[in-house]
Amino acid sequence: MRATLTLENGMTVPDQSLTNPDPAWPEPRLTLKSQLEDLTLVWPWVEAIADRYFVPADTQFAIQLCLEEALSNVIRHGYQGQPNQSVSVECAPAVENEGAGELVFIVEDHAPPFDPLASAVDAPAPATASLQEFPPGGQGIRLMRKFASRLAWQQLPNGNRLTLAFAIPQSLSPSVP
């Protein structure tokens, strides 16, 4: 049986499932090794979270897209192909007073500091004249900016933290009975 979120007026509260995990619920944190094969673990994890929080299909698409980008960037660029490093992603629901809220994903690594949001690549599409000039890279950041509702980067003492938030429609929020 599914527990409901405990809400306090105007406050963001953690889901009780994070402190009282049920085996049927997804783990709040997923840890991957720094190898692209491990990205296959992300899809079922996000799918379980999407089921748990009644996330609409389009939002689930956006989450999958952004996490694939964020995690593959860490593995390929942050760790530069070094094996046996780790990157974690944690999911936390942030629910506001009215029942609307967001799902927040926090990606943490131990790679050298790199702020992907400081990249010159911005939301507008590239003004390339031909397919031959189409940039092979840089799409990931552009896609994350478009599909996440909020992005934030923070340098950690020994790594990076990228926060990606996705709005959950009010009517589908888990706080609604």
Partner: peptide, 13 residues
């Protein structure tokens, strides 16, 4: 299609 448009590839293909 939204991914195609965000990337700008829809203007080339």
């Amino acid at each position: 299609e939204s991914v195609l448009k965000t990337s700008g590839i829809d203007t080339l293909i």
